[in-house]
Design a protein around this nucleic acid. Structure first.
Lengths: 167, 167
DNA sequence: TATTGTTATACTCTATAACTATA
DNA sequence: TATAGTTATAGAGTATAACAATA
């Protein structure tokens, strides 16, 4: 469930254009454009192009996009199936088949929890961990749009995102 | 249950930092971290949570993620099926079923091209265009991580992304 | 009774290959 | 022959519902 989505529904309320010019809410610049909206639109545009490439990136490792996500998550330590389902924002029933396929390929293992015998903990195999290292290095490669930025922009961007993460 | 299961504990580990080899790639700062890599990692982390929410956002309009993408693309004007396949980075055969489902829902129409009768052009119906307007407004809403930024950061971010887009 | 993981079922997205109707 | 779109088929991700084992 997406907890942030309800407060934004417009059921007879004022459309976004009206709010933008009303002077209520965030700062408005000289063009009458909400600054946050503009920055977000630009960021979205830049990130969208890159995110669309993610399936192809995962395929470089013969992983589906979701499998790549799982490999990434699982590096932090053992994870219960149900916890993984929460992280993936999907129903627990899907995790069974997902893990089945990854187990067949020797990437993950199911281990029964000793505390609660209903629970199965997932861990990366040695092969899975090795694959994860390569995947993380590949993910860490900045796309051209970032790599081509001048040093000043990179430093500003880094600092802005550091602050954003702290909030 | 004291210390009985170190190996089974969930999320017990430390975040595995990606180690950067020095001397590889562009400039390296005092920490031995490549600046572009660091900025990219932060941006990726901040954006990742939001991008993962896209299926739920599309579902607010009873669209699959791909259908939402199509509605967005189709606003620019009529599009050949094959061109849409290129934009979606998928095989043309998939577009048939995709458009079938959207046509049944009255969101798009197929129109035979007059120049080349093999080609079918896709256009949004009136209902599809109306849905697109609502979808674009929803997509334009900045997530909390952006909306909560101070004005100075927002302006810097906007300017950096404007420059990046021009390159 | 409630929870964890599984199974069964159905729908969508995706790829490959074979087909059609045009060009 | 080559191209645009379709159909057939298969595999993967997703949701809901019913179920067994365990708590």
């Amino acid at each position: 469930m997406s907890g942030t989505s309800e407060g934004q529904m417009e059921r007879g309320g004022k459309p976004a254009e009206v709010r933008r010019r009303s002077g209520v809410g965030p700062s408005v610049d000289a063009l009458g454009q909400d600054l946050a909206h503009e920055a977000w639109a630009l960021l979205f545009e830049v990130m969208h192009a890159h995110m669309r490439n993610f399936p192809a990136l995962a395929a470089e490792f013969e992983l589906s996009p979701v499998q790549a996500h799982v490999v990434r998550q699982l590096g932090e330590g053992p994870l219960a199936m149900s916890t993984l389902a929460t992280y993936l924002s999907c129903d627990a029933s899907n995790v069974t088949g997902l893990v089945d396929r990854m187990e067949v390929r020797g990437l993950v293992e199911r281990r029964s929890s000793e505390h609660d015998r209903r629970v199965k903990m997932l861990v990366l195999t040695e092969a899975g961990a090795a694959l994860r290292e390569r995947l993380l290095e590949r993910l860490a490669e900045p796309p051209a749009v970032i790599a081509n930025m001048p040093e000043g922009d990179l430093k500003s961007l880094r600092d802005i995102m550091r602050r954003a993460r702290e909030r």
